[in-house]
Amino acid sequence: MAETVFTPSLEGMKHVKAENGVILTKPFLEVCKQILPVLDKFGAAMAIVKSDIGGNITRLENKYSSDPSKYEHLYTMVQEEVQNKTAKGSSSCTNGLLWLTRAMDFLVELFRNLLEHPDWTMSQACTDSYTKTLKKFHGWLASSSFTRNG
């Protein structure tokens, strides 16, 4: 199979889980970071998405870096915030992880649309992907802003 911009991410995915199935923080974040240069190829249309993804990765990386052995497993961050009753805060790692995974769901759907519908415009592909993945989590303002500019 020919190498694509996705090859490093696909290779990295093989190292995200520990033998017992838990997600390892550093490899997970490394795979997430691999998508950022891909988003640059889309220009300004993906600037906000890239910024959000990058910000959430940085938030999680900062927590991980504060104690790499303690936060080796991604779940440890969430578990700690749930116990401390800080998980629902807008600046929590739990919230960052939630939005990071939602953004990745959106991108997977976008790439699927671009592959399966070569006749669609970028706007059509983005709007469809947004509707299927993120719209239900956004208020009307964010939703209308995205579809108008998407």
Score class of each variant (00 low, 15 high):
residue 13 M to G: 05
residue 13 M to P: 00
residue 17 K to L: 13
residue 18 A to M: 11
residue 18 A to W: 06
residue 18 A to H: 14
residue 20 N to M: 01
residue 22 V to P: 01
residue 23 I to H: 04
residue 23 I to M: 10
residue 24 L to D: 03
residue 26 K to C: 01
residue 27 P to W: 02
residue 29 L to R: 06
residue 32 C to N: 01
residue 32 C to A: 12
residue 32 C to S: 07
residue 32 C to G: 01
residue 34 Q to E: 06
residue 35 I to C: 09
residue 36 L to Q: 10
residue 37 P to R: 07
residue 39 L to T: 07
residue 40 D to C: 10
residue 40 D to E: 14
residue 44 A to C: 10
residue 45 A to I: 14
residue 45 A to D: 12
residue 47 A to S: 15
residue 48 I to V: 12
residue 48 I to N: 07
residue 49 V to N: 08
residue 51 S to D: 12
residue 53 I to M: 15
residue 55 G to Q: 11
residue 56 N to H: 13
residue 57 I to W: 06
residue 57 I to K: 08
residue 59 R to N: 15
residue 60 L to Q: 02
residue 60 L to F: 02
residue 61 E to T: 06
residue 64 Y to N: 01
residue 64 Y to K: 02
residue 65 S to R: 14
residue 66 S to E: 05
residue 67 D to A: 15
residue 68 P to I: 05
residue 72 E to Y: 14
residue 74 L to W: 12
residue 76 T to R: 15
residue 77 M to A: 14
residue 79 Q to G: 06
residue 79 Q to H: 12
residue 81 E to K: 06
residue 81 E to T: 10
residue 84 N to P: 07
residue 85 K to C: 08
residue 85 K to T: 08
residue 87 A to F: 08
residue 88 K to T: 06
residue 88 K to Y: 10
residue 88 K to N: 08
residue 88 K to F: 11
residue 88 K to G: 06
residue 89 G to W: 04
residue 92 S to L: 09
residue 92 S to N: 08
residue 93 C to N: 14
residue 93 C to D: 09
residue 94 T to I: 07
residue 95 N to H: 07
residue 96 G to Y: 04
residue 100 L to G: 02
residue 100 L to P: 01
residue 105 D to T: 06
residue 107 L to D: 01
residue 108 V to M: 11
residue 108 V to Q: 09
residue 109 E to I: 08
residue 109 E to H: 07
residue 109 E to Q: 10
residue 110 L to N: 00
residue 114 L to H: 00
residue 115 L to M: 07
residue 115 L to A: 06
residue 117 H to W: 00
residue 118 P to E: 00
residue 118 P to K: 00
residue 120 W to S: 00
residue 120 W to Y: 12
residue 121 T to C: 02
residue 122 M to D: 03
residue 122 M to N: 03
residue 123 S to D: 12
residue 123 S to P: 01
residue 123 S to K: 15
